[in-house]
Amino acid sequence: MKHLISFEDKVILITGASAGIGQATAILLSNLGAKLILLATNEEKLINTMELLSGGGHHYFCYNLANLENIESKIKEIINIGGKIDGFVNCVGVRSRRPISLLTPKEIRNLMDINFGSFIEIVRCITKKGNFNSGLSIVGVSSIAAQAGGVSVTAYAASKAAVESAVRCLSKELAPKNIRLNTVVPAQINTPEYANLLNMNGGVDNVLNRQYLGLGEAVDVANAIAFLLSPASKFITGISLPVDGGYLSS
């Protein structure tokens, strides 16, 4: 049988792989033959994800991406050990719920740094000559909040919209290097983060009224990411692909 999506011997970097969508993506890609480099803050959770992977040749690195200044040297170290990059999935995403009255410049800047600044810095570093293989595909994880807005998620939505917009520029700029970039735009997905949110709202989630395919699973998003990473989508670049159970169309 022909495998439309295979990552045999491909090196894929995943940030935020210790839980939720990042973890599901790591597991799926390992099943599809990828050699993974996982990057996240919490070592314990990273080891937990490592144990769930198939195949060998995976690596993990602990790093707090809020520290933008040292990303460059970290990426050098990662590439020395793990090899040139064929794919990069950015699953880092800090959520924050703050009413506008409490959304101080410091809050918004911190969130912007981790959700947007770290993404650009990693892309900048891995797209340097010698750090990647031709055909590199990059996938960012956005959110329907970026496109639809929501009460008290102003900074989070802005950071995700920034990612989508930057991807449209970068896809043009990096096309001559045979690099593609896209984002997936998930709606409500059954993750530990979502459980927290539901808990806070007393078990009620009005978003699901419009998300007519119901609550998504992390693997649903992982499947879309795998497609955009793979050569099966080699003519697709600069897009934001909703993985939203219909939310944005309702």
Binding site: I100, M112, F116, I120, A145, A146, Q147, A148, G149, G150, V151, S152, V153, T154, A155, A157, A158, S159, K160, A161, A162, V163, E164, S165, A166, V167, R168, C169, L170, S171, K172, E173, G238
Partner: peptide, 24 residues
Amino acid sequence: GLKSKIAYSASKAALDASVRGMAS
């Protein structure tokens, strides 16, 4: 998107998204 307008485009997209958040 436009080549070399990464930061500018992102800041304007973020601005629009913040507008939607504030509006709600």
